[in-house]
Deep mutational scan, measured.
Amino acid sequence: DEIHIHFNGVTIEFRGLTEEAKKALEEAIKRGASEEELKELARRLIK
C-alpha cells in the first residue's frame, strides 16, 4: 500500500501507511502544508 503526493511538480512517495496516516497527510495537504512539513509528518507517521 503506497501513496503518491504530487506537490509543486515533485512526487513524494510513501509506502506502508495506515489509513489514519493517509488521512493525516491528506488533511495536511488540504490546509496547505509545505513539502518539508509533509515529509516530517510522514516520518512521524511511519515510525
Rank of each mutant, 00 (worst) to 15 (best):
D1Q: 11
D1G: 13
D1P: 10
D1K: 08
D1T: 08
E2C: 15
E2Y: 15
E2I: 15
E2W: 15
I3T: 12
I3R: 05
I3H: 08
I3P: 05
I3A: 06
I3C: 07
H4N: 03
H4E: 04
H4D: 04
H4Q: 03
H4V: 06
I5E: 01
I5M: 05
I5K: 01
I5V: 08
I5G: 02
H6L: 02
H6D: 07
H6Q: 05
H6C: 10
H6R: 03
H6W: 03
F7M: 14
F7K: 04
F7T: 04
F7G: 02
F7A: 05
N8Q: 08
N8A: 05
N8W: 02
N8R: 01
N8L: 05
G9F: 00
G9T: 01
V10R: 03
V10P: 01
V10K: 11
V10Y: 01
V10L: 07
T11I: 13
T11H: 04
I12R: 00
I12P: 01
I12Q: 00
I12L: 02
I12H: 02
I12N: 01
I12D: 02
I12T: 01
E13M: 04
E13V: 14
F14H: 04
F14T: 14
F14E: 03
R15L: 14
R15A: 15
R15N: 14
R15P: 15
R15T: 15
R15S: 15
R15G: 14
G16E: 14
G16H: 13
G16L: 03
G16V: 03
L17A: 06
L17M: 07
L17W: 02
L17E: 02
L17F: 07
L17P: 01
L17S: 01
L17G: 04
T18H: 06
T18L: 03
T18M: 03
T18P: 11
T18F: 03
T18E: 09
E19L: 07
E19T: 09
E19F: 04
E19V: 09
E19K: 07
E19I: 09
E19S: 10
E20I: 10
E20W: 11
E20F: 06
E20P: 08
A21R: 01
A21D: 14
A21M: 14
A21S: 12
A21K: 04
K22P: 02
K22T: 06
K22W: 13
K23S: 10
K23P: 11
K23H: 11
K23G: 09
A24V: 13
A24Q: 12
A24R: 09
A24H: 11
L25W: 08
L25K: 00
L25M: 07
L25C: 03
L25Q: 00
E26T: 12
E26M: 14
E26W: 14
E27Q: 11
E27R: 08
E27V: 06
E27F: 07
E27W: 05
E27G: 07
A28F: 10
A28V: 08
A28Y: 10
A28C: 08
I29Y: 10
K30T: 12
K30D: 09
K30C: 07
K30L: 08
K30A: 13
K30I: 10
K30Q: 09
R31N: 10
R31I: 06
R31M: 10
R31K: 11
R31V: 09
G32S: 05
G32W: 04
G32C: 09
G32D: 06
G32L: 05
G32N: 09
G32V: 05
A33Q: 04
A33S: 08
A33I: 14
S34K: 07
S34C: 06
S34A: 06
E35Y: 13
E35C: 11
E35M: 15
E35F: 14
E35S: 09
E35A: 14
E36G: 10
E36N: 10
E36V: 07
E36I: 07
E36C: 05
E37T: 08
E37H: 06
E37Q: 08
E37A: 08
E37K: 04
E37D: 08
L38V: 06
L38S: 00
L38T: 01
L38Y: 02
L38R: 00
L38F: 13
K39Q: 12
K39A: 12
K39D: 04
E40K: 06
E40A: 09
E40L: 05
E40V: 05
E40C: 04
E40G: 04
L41Y: 02
L41D: 00
L41K: 01
L41M: 09
L41S: 00
A42R: 00
A42C: 05
A42F: 13
A42L: 13
A42P: 00
R43P: 05
R43H: 14
R43E: 15
R43Y: 07
R44Q: 13
R44K: 11
R44S: 13
R44W: 09
L45P: 01
L45Q: 03
L45A: 04
L45N: 03
I46R: 03
I46Q: 07
I46L: 08
I46Y: 02
I46T: 10
K47S: 13
K47H: 11
K47P: 13
K47Y: 04
